[in-house]
Design a protein around this nucleic acid. Sequence first.
DNA 1: TTGTATGCGTTATCAT
DNA 2: ATGATAACGCATACAA
Lengths: 338, 338
Amino acid sequence: MSATMRDVARLAGVSVKTVSNVVNDFPHVSVATRTRVLAAITELGYQMNFSARNLSRGRTGMIALAVPRLRLPYFAELTDEVIVAAEARGYTVLVEQTGGVHERELEVLGSDRRRMTDGLIFSPLGLRPGDAPRLEVGYPLVLLGERALHGEVHHVSMANVAGARSVAEHLIARGRRRIALVGSYDERGAGAGSLRTQGFLSALHAAGLEHDPARTGETLEWTRATGAEAMRALLDRGVEIDAVFGLNDALALGAMRVLFERGLRVPDDVAVAGFDDIEDGRFARPSLTTVHPGRAEIAGAAVALLMDRLSGAPQRPAGEEVVVPHRLIVRESSGQGH
Amino acid sequence: MSATMRDVARLAGVSVKTVSNVVNDFPHVSVATRTRVLAAITELGYQMNFSARNLSRGRTGMIALAVPRLRLPYFAELTDEVIVAAEARGYTVLVEQTGGVHERELEVLGSDRRRMTDGLIFSPLGLRPGDAPRLEVGYPLVLLGERALHGEVHHVSMANVAGARSVAEHLIARGRRRIALVGSYDERGAGAGSLRTQGFLSALHAAGLEHDPARTGETLEWTRATGAEAMRALLDRGVEIDAVFGLNDALALGAMRVLFERGLRVPDDVAVAGFDDIEDGRFARPSLTTVHPGRAEIAGAAVALLMDRLSGAPQRPAGEEVVVPHRLIVRESSGQGH
DNA sequence: TTGTATGCGTTATCAT
DNA sequence: ATGATAACGCATACAA
């Protein structure tokens, strides 16, 4: 097997403690012994046994990130950023997929696996008010993209309401009056779906418009495929529309594809907008108007918040909410007026 | 702190060994004691300390997956599948991003972090013949998407050559004769780039065609953005083309976007095809002709191969190569003839 | 079927 | 500045 600290110590003629001091950059080690130890380490090809270190230290140097699924571009890009941010602080990330299934999401919170990590960054698809107690876990937890259910848990959220409102305002300013809403959500939830819908509706009301429920394309999953289905259903029902707001970019892209298939021109006949600013939207045809939610900032803030708690930094107020600013990005899919 | 096995044992009136037997589903435990122990476990809310278990067992129950970046759709989808496959076998996945940088890729192989996992599934962007010795690591390793450099390491690869050849044959059958190649690769590498290019060229040669080097759009990174740049450069140079083969879908999608911006019709003026069958291609406008490389199969095979080695299963021949079958998927971007 | 004793490789406490 | 030694929590011979 591979060498242990004991082997290194023996070879260098010092005690294990000294070896430990060296590998951990403990300040008080004479240059002579340090070099001697380092030499022994390279000679033996010694590598730290993390299990032993973790057991002794009582922590693991790993954090978990729970997302619905990596195949959803938004979460892939988010995970990418979280890994980068964690890495910068010497932490390793363990990715957990919940499938966005409520039951699985709750399971993940209490899973045995949580004992393998020091903390959890959790991006639920839709927590419900009744779930609040389940969030009182015994380890550092940071919630993403969710309004705090009870104010006890730290969380980082994007400007769901404001972002959706600005998209709707933009469409209205472009002269659109019959805007379809594609994507729905668990009504018991308090997640992004409900918040974005709120923002959307508030803009309509502010403009003195009504949202005809017939113009809502129901779909629980937020993928291109379901967005396409919902759009088809709307058109098949003969609903009249001059714009589409997808609750996320994937839905919007799926819808846009169907509009194309049905011979409707975007944006001339129907303007389209989404939410998330995923990479595909930038290169789609036409390119997709959307809301940039500050993914990198969210990831950075979440990791920072979690690290603060791990290092026992001056306690931030429980339930503190970090809201990352958004940015409306107007592209071709809503570019011109009628 | 949280309860230990000792606490559980004490409460249940048994020894730690018995508790251990219960939580590990050891066969010979009487129903009476088992239920007693389980009761104590739930009462105390006991959860296994993985660090301790790992130290004792000598393994961690985690595997690492090293990919270039999760923001690249192909790798996001691949990672998704690997996590699912690993989960099914009780393993947790730790994701490592190499950025596709050769230096970082080699570092990852020997990093301290490797001691936190039982094995590694490694998806390099381009290993070079000289790197072979670096692949002789002291732990189970499975390479993805790479032809074995020396035949010592196990690997799972997609049909890069055959897939690219079938794409090129398809374009040629559609009457295309001036096919641009978008995307290049480190010439020192033996990665997907070189293999796909080989397949592409072989189809041309078989058809008695020459590939004019002027029709190659150089770009090391394989993203939509770089694909777009390369396409712009080609068109700006006034190169005449009637088709584009992107070394992956992202490149092809970026190129297609530029063709649109320049007023060229796809597929009427220029047919486009990619490789990878990422989700965006299905919903792009026009939808993208591509090669489905069997992502799920690759992930499954890689995990299976790694698990075999972890469990010390009957040694498979070193350097065995599992090649997953591909499938040409013809869509709108190359749908019609001239 | 269950208990006892020992080891896993590090860190931390306390001396020196 | 360095060393001896006791945890850390669990698994596993070996006993009983």
